[in-house]
Design a protein around this nucleic acid. Sequence first.
DNA 1: TTCATATAGTACTAAAATAGTCCTATATGA
DNA 2: TCATATAGGACTATTTTAGTACTATATGAA
Lengths: 156, 156
Amino acid sequence: MLRVSKLTDYATVILTHIAHQPDELYAASDITQSTGVALPTVSKVLKLLSKANLLISHRGAKGGYELAKKPNETNVAEVIAAIEGPIGMTECTTSESTCEQESSCEIKGNWNLINRAVYTALEAVTLADMVVPVRQQEVNVVMPMNKEMNELKVEN
Amino acid sequence: MLRVSKLTDYATVILTHIAHQPDELYAASDITQSTGVALPTVSKVLKLLSKANLLISHRGAKGGYELAKKPNETNVAEVIAAIEGPIGMTECTTSESTCEQESSCEIKGNWNLINRAVYTALEAVTLADMVVPVRQQEVNVVMPMNKEMNELKVEN
DNA sequence: TTCATATAGTACTAAAATAGTCCTATATGA
DNA sequence: TCATATAGGACTATTTTAGTACTATATGAA
């Protein structure tokens, strides 16, 4: 299945938690308590998010982390990229790889196209959207919804 | 990075190859030669695609595989699901998992929303689109394209 | 009827990616 | 000066993925 890593999942949980009160400073230990994720893991995620400039870190006593931008200015595509690196669904679209099949590969360009579509979808969802419970929100994704999709929608 | 497995990548290459001449029968050995992917691997992919009803298999001498549907009736979401299982970006959206954090997890619904957006994007691209070189095609994805996206577009 | 060919299914091994933990260094406020 | 908190790196165990191999079954043709 197409999926993000557990760490990325934690990252969204943590960022959503922080986004509830964007002006406060959160220490790793605070976040462990409120999310139930183990401290070393929380710590690892926070470091990655800080390195990617999605969080600002403050060292020392009374230190902690805060959002680098407003909740509506950080989107899911950025979060995934912060934890997992550049978003690209195949090897040949993320690295200057030496693909042995390259000469006979006709579809590299098509994967770029698919990547773009997926990226746009991920980019449309921000932390501000994540803070609002799903029932009440209208996410800014302009796409046709088919029957299956609408059935899924009912589940929430 | 968000990505599909190598086998899924092979699957798109193989299906695209077959889609060029949808009425012919292709043996695994034919496909090895034209794609450069190792025979046991090709064989594995073909079996998975057949099991998922994207290909129809014919046993015995002069046997082989053919497309189960017209190229424009098989989309990338189906191909990914055939190889990797149901598309869902987090554990809690694909399985009846016993997530320990569930009680304090506020964003399961939001991930469903993101999944839906990604799924719709993947569903919009069919084998018929993959057969056409990227320069000439117009893919039916109705989404706003931002600056970055358009820059990517130029690359092709 | 026999045989070469081709898929079906399953099991197994090796390699790579991921998750999670731990330790030491550095910064900062009281 | 010390308790607190992040920074950075190294390390291990686990899981996933990739690739291979083997046996069974189906089919067309000589």
